Simulated assay, not measured.
Amino acid sequence: MVQKVSSTRAFARIAPRVVPALDRAVHRLTRGKVLLSAQLLPGVILTARGAKSGLPRRTPLACMPESDGTWILIGSNFGRTDHPAWTANLLAHPDAEINWKGRDISVTAHLLRGEERDTVWKALLDFWPPYATYQARVAREIRLFRLVRR
């Protein structure tokens, strides 16, 4: 049921405003122990420097943890037409930090392309099928990043 609701256009309109605000508030109140959206999907708080400002930007994001200790971030923007701002931040400044399960971890982000992206995309669709709906709504290719510990 959650996957069905998250695939709707109404959810795509409302979620970008509501979900990150709730995530940031709950994460702050619990001192990094709880990320509300992580009750559905694994999640991190990404801290990356702004592409233009250079200022730290904190963004709660769903992720797909990989067995080798890396994480995949998905720039789906809930199936909205533009790439999310955090993806531009990582393209400009790939060294970032995540908070994963209450621990701060320094990472470097790598934009996935070609066969590597295709392989990860297939795994993502098994992990969370609504990503296919998000991709079908937009002409842009959804950006995928692999985060590697520094």
Rank of each mutant, 00 (worst) to 15 (best):
I14H: 03
P16W: 03
R17L: 12
V18C: 07
V26D: 08
H27Y: 13
H27P: 06
H27I: 07
R28V: 10
L29D: 08
T30R: 09
R31Q: 11
G32D: 08
K33H: 15
K33Y: 10
L35I: 08
S37V: 05
A38K: 06
L41F: 12
G43E: 03
V44F: 05
V44E: 03
V44R: 01
T47I: 11
R49Y: 09
R49S: 14
R49L: 15
A51F: 05
P56G: 09
P56I: 08
R57H: 11
M64G: 02
P65A: 03
G69A: 08
W71P: 02
L73I: 02
I74R: 00
S76Y: 00
S76H: 00
S76L: 01
T87N: 01
D95M: 10
A96W: 02
E97I: 08
E97A: 12
E97F: 04
I98W: 06
I98V: 15
N99W: 10
N99H: 12
G102W: 07
R103T: 13
R103P: 05
R103A: 15
R103E: 15
D104P: 04
T108C: 15
T108Y: 11
T108H: 15
H110Y: 15
L111P: 06
R113Y: 13
G114H: 09
E116H: 14
D118I: 01
W121L: 04
